[in-house]
Design a protein around this nucleic acid. Structure first.
Lengths: 232, 232
DNA sequence: ACCTGAACACCGTTCAAGT
DNA sequence: ACCTGAACACCGTTCAAGT
């Protein structure tokens, strides 16, 4: 089960650290101090070692971050998925979403790539198969996957930023007209809706909203400026 | 038009810098060196001044970033919006999206807040009014706005990360089975779809996908595990 | 082969002093 | 009132040396 990455055992000083130990230590630091607290120096401290020792096992800090992400993805649960293709898609994305939501700092890294780590390829396969089973031709299935992924990244990004901003409630991000104190004369709808806004702030509607997007994609929302019509 | 923020003109040394000058200089630095190149020291250099001079005009670097975001939002275009509520929503989001896509580094900041800067409140109002006009009750209109915003943030996040990653093509983000070299025996759908994936990489389908999400939300995608049925 | 220590080129920010 | 200069407590990383 454990990766059998025996390096060539030449002569010389025997290793005290290992790549896995470095990555585990980094994970411990992130859990304790957050992603901003992750520094090479602190990881070294965690290992009772010197900062430069890490560089024997990871190329640089960026590579350590990627290794951290891989570690997280490998640990995603592997539940059975429902039969129904639409449900299968939603559950598969749910697995990804929930697994990453617990460590939302990964989102920045994640967005760059495509999440095709070997350990999640089965989920991506299931999602694409589900999209095809829902009647989408290959090209549209790929486009749909992309849109669903974009939505997922957005939800996670906002979730992360929201959690991160709490300690600094004194200064809002964008200079804000707190949305509850909007002038009903000039912005009537915003004023009418203000109460619901506050209530919605906390709710987790990821799967519902993802389902809406999925249904819209399956129905093949016709291009802009035209109304929905029956297609296929 | 220009903000008339005359500070009390007491006795003492006359100001050489101003908050606006600092923010403009910061914008110039970001344009030249990217968001990672934005340092207090460089902004000071841009102004032929010392790093600490900036702290008379902005509280700290975070506040400078927020000011930079405000500057950007204020400069969004203010086009006329179409009559049709669905089109109005799509165009309004398009204005926001396109304006921010040109400076995708803002996304991280943006995600934290709610984009209720006074200068875009009119757009947010229009979007909410459009959603209500599409038949959504207040609560669902707010939920829909949130979902559309999440999707927008996701698209921008991925766009930014994709642009940012180019210089380091040597090391993929997540360890990747490049998706074109997937084993068709074990991942048949992925293999079948691989060509379309490469083709889709570059296409900008933001508005189309946003329209799909919007239509799904208007149709009120029923909760998970149930199929679409007629509601209202 | 693996690790250490000192050093370099950076950060944001505080603090005391100049004009 | 506004700006400067030196200094502090950090970074990631290079380089030469130890075992």
């Amino acid at each position: 089960m454990g990766s059998v990455e025996e390096r060539p055992r030449g002569p010389g000083r025997p290793p005290r650290l290992s790549r896995a130990a470095v990555v585990d230590a980094a994970a411990a630091v992130v859990d304790r101090d957050g992603i901003d607290g992750l520094t090479m120096r602190r990881v070294a401290e965690e290992l009772d070692s010197s900062p430069m020792a890490l560089y024997r096992h990871v190329r640089d800090k960026d590579e350590l971050l990627v290794a951290l992400l891989d570690r997280l993805v490998e640990r995603l649960p592997r539940p059975d998925l429902p039969e129904d293709p639409r449900d299968r898609i939603l559950v598969a994305f749910g697995v990804i979403h929930d697994g990453l939501a617990a460590s939302p700092w990964v989102v920045g890294l994640l967005a760059a790539g495509d999440l095709m780590a070997p350990s999640v390829a089965w989920l991506i396969e299931e999602i694409h198969a589900g999209l095809v089973a829902c009647g989408l031709p290959a090209e549209r299935a790929v486009a749909a996957y992309r849109a669903l992924w974009q939505f997922t990244i957005g939800e996670l990004t906002i979730r992360d930023a929201g959690a991160r901003v709490i300690p600094r409630a004194d200064r809002p991000a964008v200079q804000t007209t707190t949305r509850t104190e909007v002038d009903p004369e000039v912005f009537p709808t915003l004023a009418a809706v203000a109460d619901h806004w506050a209530a919605a702030r906390g709710r987790d509607t990821y799967t519902e909203d993802l389902a809406a997007l999925l249904d819209g994609l399956i129905a093949c929302a016709p291009s802009f400026a035209y109304r929905v019509r029956e297609s296929r």
